[in-house]
Structure formats: C-alpha cells, structure tokens
Nucleic acid binder design. Structure first.
Ligand code: FES
Ligand code: FES
Lengths: 137, 137
DNA sequence: CAGAGCAGGACTGAATTTGTCCTGCTTAAT
DNA sequence: ATTAAGCAGGACAAATTCAGTCCTGCTCTG
C-alpha cells in the first residue's frame, strides 16, 4: 500500500522530540510517551531500534533514558527508516529473487530498482535539522 | 514497509505485456496468466481494476479479453498505482485525521505530505512507453 | 539493596494482503 | 436457440504482516 509503518512514525516523532529537548538532556521513554501521546511499550521498541542504529544513545539505570546519538544535521529521515524498517524492498525480488515467479521474463526490475533509489535519495536529502526548520511557529 | 503490493506488480506486468502485443490485439486473461506465470484468478482482479480506471479496456463474450485503453505514452506508472492501490497515503492522517493520536502536536505532517508528492511525481514521470524503451534487448 | 529505567524475547490480536470460489452476464460460433 | 468462452464482481478463506502487550533480566543511582 506504499505506506510508512507506525513504528517509523513513532521513531520520527521521538527523534524530533529529543531534538527540541537539546542534545544533553536525557529523556525517559515514559516522559516521551506521555508527552507525545503514544503507547510507552511500543515506543520503547522504536527507541531500541534507533539506539542500535546509533541514532539515539541510551543511559541505563535510574535517571536513565535516551538522548540523540549525534547532531541533528547528521541524522536523515533515511537513517530513521533504515533503523526501524530495515533495508527497503520496493519489490519482492529485492529481498529474494525466488519470490518473483517471473524473474527471468521481468521487464521492469531495472526501473523499480532505480525508483527505489530515487525514493531513498529523497529520504536522505532531509536531515532532522532541516525538518525542524520547516516548522512554522 | 514501503513496499509495492503484489497486485500492482501483476498490473504493471500485464500492462507492459499488452503493450508489447500491440494496441489492437485482444488478449485473454488466461493467455496472459499462462504466458507470464501468474495466477489467473488474481490477475483477473488486477485487470478489472485497470479496466475501471480506463487503462485497459475489455471485450466481453467469446473471443473477448483485454486491450490497452490508451496509448502507452498516455499511461504512467502512477496511473497504474492509482488504479490498483487507490489514492496513496504515506501517513495515516492522510486517510483520516483521527488515526493520528498526535495530530495537533505533529511536527512532520507537512514534510510527509510533500514527500508523498515527490514520490507521486516520480511515478508520474514514467510512462509505459518510456519504461519499454529502457529494456535492453 | 531497592527501585527506576533500558534491553529484548515471546507472544497475542488485529489488520491487511493474497488468493480462491462461485454465480451471473455478454457474445461469437454453431 | 444453445453452448461455451470469457469478463464482472461479490464473498470468503488463508497467509502474512503489523501493532501492541507482557514478562524477565540487566544496569545504575541513591
Ligand atoms: S523479477 Fe521482481 S519485479 Fe520482476
Ligand atoms: S498528524 Fe499524522 S503524521 Fe503527524
């Protein structure tokens, strides 16, 4: 259906939220969830993915929580998508060739590949920094 | 997961298939399905969607089948996507606002909107004609 | 050492996708 | 007129994916 996953939306919200809080500030999942209006458990999953990708970094124990792992100019929307949804596969043969019954006779595999690339480029062109700039106050 | 639906793949295959057969030629679903290697029943669904959108036109009765509804230069990938998957909704609030719990506090709705537009533009930029040109013989 | 909070696996329910089936309608050919 | 090929489309079933919950363990502060 060419729709972004909910987990990705959670992640993007979380990152912009952290960004507005400033780099140093450690924020707990509960605080974020309450503040934004998400399910705490599920947001936690998204944060874990972001952490593994280095986009967020975590502090454990009491007084723990999450911060951004790097500057907002160094985080693109593509990074978040990759962290949360994994490598994109616009078509099935992207994940494994056998999933396309007609692999050998396929005429548009090449096009779909470049299309995916172009979409990827769109996502890479937007950093969190520039995303925040776009907000009208 | 930002992946195109199988039905769309079926439809795209079908359109390029019809295109290579020439405008006048009426092709039956069975022929297409056998030839390409798809499930006849399911391909039939895709064809019905294409028909409703005017991309394909059908001939009923014995000796019936499908033809392209208009010239290959007048069919874009976006048309096929629209016919088969309906209007695209990259984010949920695109379909209805209530599906976003945080509609009022959302920072990236604007961006997602323009992103969707850009993707749409990519799809509109490719006609079936130009797609067929790209095939290396 | 108690408790706040992250890490992550397992699991469940919901939603969507994918595919099949069946019935009816249209028309060419006999 | 009858038959059969083929489209139209609704209903349904299976499979897959997504969304969300639960539970257990680990880490650190006070
Ligand atoms: S082989 Fe995958 S789209 Fe054709
Ligand atoms: S309101 Fe829909 S993405 Fe924010």
């Amino acid at each position: 259906m060419l729709q972004v996953s909910r987990k990705f939306e959670y992640g993007l919200h979380a990152v912009t939220y952290l960004a507005t809080k400033g780099q140093g500030r450690v924020v707990t999942v509960k605080e974020m969830a309450d503040d934004i209006g998400f399910s705490q458990e599920f947001l936690s999953k998204a944060m874990q993915s972001l952490k593994r990708a280095g986009i967020a970094s975590s502090v454990q124990g009491v007084k723990g929580g999450y911060t951004l792992g790097r500057a907002t100019t160094e985080i693109t929307v593509a990074d978040i998508a990759l962290a949360i949804e994994g490598k994109p596969h616009l078509v099935r043969c992207g994940v494994k060739a056998e999933s396309c019954e007609v692999f050998s006779s396929c005429h548009h595999r090449g096009y779909m590949g470049t299309l995916q690339h172009k979409i990827q480029d769109l996502l890479e062109d937007t950093t969190i920094y520039s995303l925040l700039q776009q907000i009208v106050p």
